[in-house]
Amino acid sequence: MKPWTEEDLILLYYQELDPALTREIEQAMAESSKQSVQLRRDYDALCKMLGDALESDVPEPSADLNQQIMLAIREAEAKKQQTATVRSESNQQHRPAIAESLGERMSRWLAGSLDSKLRPALMFLLFAVIGIFYLGRWSAMPLEAPIVDLGAPSKIEQSFRPSDDASRRVLLTNVSSHIETSQRLLTLVSNGGDGLSGELEPRRQMIDELISFNRLYRRVAVRSGDTMLANVLQQMESVLLEISHTKSSDDAQWNKVRERLDGTDLLFKLKVTDKRINHELI
């Protein structure tokens, strides 16, 4: 019998073995020789390990994952369009204007205002100015340029570079202010009655901005390992998204948002988080 290797058995398990070899190995396992029994045992052991022992669960993703993906894509798309619009507008408006003013003025000046006798003198003056300019540059050029390490920070840079601690304080101040603004909005939603939709309508843009900033701060918190802050921001983000997507006239939907706010104690968590941040700042 052909000596089968562990690699053949792994390929057989994943159905990646050549069909001819698959038939051959199956025939070998069906025989009753000592080697065949051992081969079957080896294959069974492999199947047990790969089949049963290597089972692992994946937790469910957030319910609004798809919404968040699409929101991020729409934001990126809007930014792209905005940049493109600004560029094309500035190209259309400024360039022709500059071209017209410079070109027209030059031609008018040369054709109209200059006397034909003055033109050679002017040309001479122009060449003289250009010549002096290049002569000055050539004489100022050092014989050997000093080697400058562009990667190394300059002295000014070194003295003004903020420390990590300072950066963190600035970040925490911004996060605290973000939490306080969000807290005010969520309190408004939590206490809001019939006129809530009217009160929220002028704040739509602010809500969208809060979502964007929240996503940014959440990522920073995740990257810096502050899981507590990241979790609270994650919860807040989903509530903010829900508020942003809720139609102003849908009372049932607003009630759901309110129930979710009360059920998760989000306002309380925000208060505690804000206090913690302020404490760290002090």
Binding site: S56, V58, P59, P61, S62, L65, Q68, I69, A72, I73, A76, R219, V222, A230, Q234
Partner: peptide, 24 residues
């Protein structure tokens, strides 16, 4: 994609961020 990302990263939030960035 989330399943694959989670199995590689072993962290739910990072896996979600990964999927979001991948789709972007």
């Amino acid at each position: 994609m989330y399943g694959a990302a989670y199995r590689i990263l072993k962290n739910k939030e990072q896996a979600e961020d990964c999927v979001q960035e991948a789709f972007l």
